Simulated scan of single mutants.
Amino acid sequence: MADELDLLRAADPMPAGGPHFGDGPLDHTAERHLDRLLHDPRPGRRTWVRPRLAWGLTAAAVVVATALTVLLGGSGTAPAVAAPRPLTVRAHSTPVPLAQVAILAAVAAQDGSPALRQGTHVQSWSLGMSDDKPPVTLPEERVVRWRADASHTEVVVATDPGHPGRSVLTDDGLVEDGHVLSRRTFPPMWGDAPPLSTPPHDPTKLHAYLAELIHTDTRTTAGLLDATQELLDNWTLGARESAALAELFADARGLRPVGQVTDRLGRTGQAYVYDGRDDGGRRMLILDPATGAVLGLETTFTRDAPEYGVHAGDVMEYRAWMR
Results as ranks from 00 to 15, higher is better:
253 R>C: 00
289 P>S: 11
202 D>L: 02
216 T>I: 00
216 T>F: 12
218 T>Y: 06
227 A>C: 05
278 D>F: 14
218 T>R: 02
190 W>V: 08
287 L>S: 04
237 L>Q: 04
267 R>A: 13
203 P>K: 09
239 A>S: 12
261 V>G: 07
212 E>N: 14
235 W>T: 02
192 D>L: 12
273 V>W: 13
204 T>I: 13
205 K>A: 14
284 M>L: 15
219 R>P: 01
231 L>K: 03
205 K>I: 00
255 L>G: 01
241 E>G: 04
223 G>E: 13
281 G>E: 08
279 D>F: 04
258 V>Q: 10
218 T>W: 05
191 G>M: 10
250 A>I: 00
290 A>R: 14
195 P>H: 07
264 R>Q: 12
265 L>Q: 09
242 S>Q: 11
260 Q>R: 12
208 A>C: 05
257 P>N: 04
278 D>S: 14
265 L>S: 02
221 T>M: 15
246 A>M: 04
226 D>R: 14
255 L>I: 02
197 S>V: 08
249 F>K: 00
199 P>R: 04
256 R>H: 09
201 H>K: 12
247 E>P: 01
243 A>V: 09
289 P>H: 08
265 L>I: 07
235 W>K: 07
245 L>K: 02
228 T>R: 04
201 H>A: 14
285 L>P: 03
212 E>G: 09
211 A>W: 10
261 V>K: 10
224 L>T: 03
234 N>I: 00
200 P>C: 15
209 Y>I: 01
263 D>F: 13
226 D>L: 14
210 L>Q: 05
223 G>P: 06
222 A>N: 13
239 A>R: 08
286 I>N: 09
230 E>C: 01
270 Q>W: 02
261 V>E: 08
281 G>L: 12
190 W>Y: 06
241 E>W: 02
190 W>I: 11
230 E>V: 03
283 R>Y: 12
260 Q>N: 07
195 P>L: 10
212 E>K: 09
196 L>Y: 03
273 V>P: 04
207 H>L: 10
